[in-house]
Simulated assay, not measured.
Amino acid sequence: MHYYFITGTSYGLGKALAEKLVQRSNVYVFGIARTCTISHKQYEHIHADLGEPSQLKLITELFKKAFQKEDQLYLINNAGIVDPIRYTGKFSPDEIQKLFQVNLLSVVQLTNAFLQIPVSSFARRVILNISSGAANKVSDGWALYGASKAGVDHFSLHVARELEIDQQAHTRIFSVAPGVVDTRMQQKIRETPIESFSTLNRFLDLDANKQLVPADQVAQKLLQITDAPELFAQTILSVRDF
């Protein structure tokens, strides 16, 4: 059996991934989000808010399931928030804490728990973290989001190195920038006042010129990685590269 644990399945890229996967045989998807928008016999929803650290236990308990040695396990850390987009000095403490909890700390915590699954319990294990081009670009108003995604990339690189040293060839980790995807996050960006970041017009133009990529197309590309991780040598990737 192929077991997928996917955060942020209410809508957007996470939902597209889950909907594609449940069409396959021998697949079971655990979707993790605050709301459930998928109904399928091969899908189980876990109601959890990744912004609340105490709720992560609802997810990590899933990793204690009695897997079989022929099972293949996948953790897709997809959930993320872009708010607040504004200049540093204008954030509330709660806003800072929530963004880093969802975008970075939950990724670290879930990956840490996922790697505690005994190596005798599966045939293959893959971690796919959804990053962003903002991880290596400097944009005014994006300090929190960019820093959180840079943290995801760097954390993934460290884990990849540890897996290599530990000779865990059956476990891979990736951090992938999905590009400009037509999701609610892009809508939130477009609704942000230009006073909060000077490059707003770029995002308005992407939408106006129909340059946003549908979530299902990006999901199909991401599944190329989970389907055949051995074909991807690098830890940090962009869907634009393949």
Rank of each mutant, 00 (worst) to 15 (best):
F174K: 04
V176W: 05
V176G: 09
A177H: 08
P178A: 10
P178K: 05
G179E: 11
G179W: 09
G179I: 12
G179D: 11
G179M: 11
V180A: 15
V180G: 11
V180K: 08
V181M: 03
D182C: 04
T183C: 03
T183A: 05
M185Y: 07
M185G: 10
Q186N: 09
Q186W: 02
Q186G: 03
Q187A: 15
K188D: 14
K188G: 10
I189Y: 06
I189Q: 07
R190W: 12
R190K: 10
R190P: 10
E191D: 15
E191F: 09
T192R: 03
P193N: 07
I194K: 11
I194N: 08
I194S: 14
E195C: 08
E195S: 13
E195N: 09
S196E: 13
F197R: 00
S198N: 13
S198V: 15
T199I: 12
T199G: 10
L200N: 05
N201R: 09
N201Q: 12
R202V: 15
R202L: 13
F203I: 02
L204V: 07
L204F: 05
D205V: 07
L206P: 00
D207V: 06
A208M: 00
A208Y: 00
N209H: 11
K210S: 15
K210V: 13
Q211N: 06
Q211V: 03
Q211P: 01
Q211C: 03
L212Q: 02
L212K: 01
L212I: 05
L212P: 01
V213L: 02
P214N: 10
A215T: 13
A215N: 09
A215C: 10
D216C: 00
Q217V: 14
V218H: 02
V218Y: 02
A219D: 05
A219P: 03
A219E: 05
Q220E: 09
Q220L: 06
L222T: 06
L222C: 05
Q224R: 06
Q224Y: 03
I225T: 06
I225E: 03
I225Y: 01
T226L: 03
D227H: 08
D227W: 04
D227Y: 05
A228Q: 10
A228T: 12
P229G: 03
P229L: 02
P229S: 05
P229Y: 02
P229A: 02
P229H: 01
L231C: 12
L231M: 11
L231A: 15
F232D: 14
F232C: 14
A233H: 06
A233D: 11
A233R: 03
Q234V: 10
Q234D: 15
Q234P: 05
T235Y: 06
T235R: 04
T235F: 08
I236E: 13
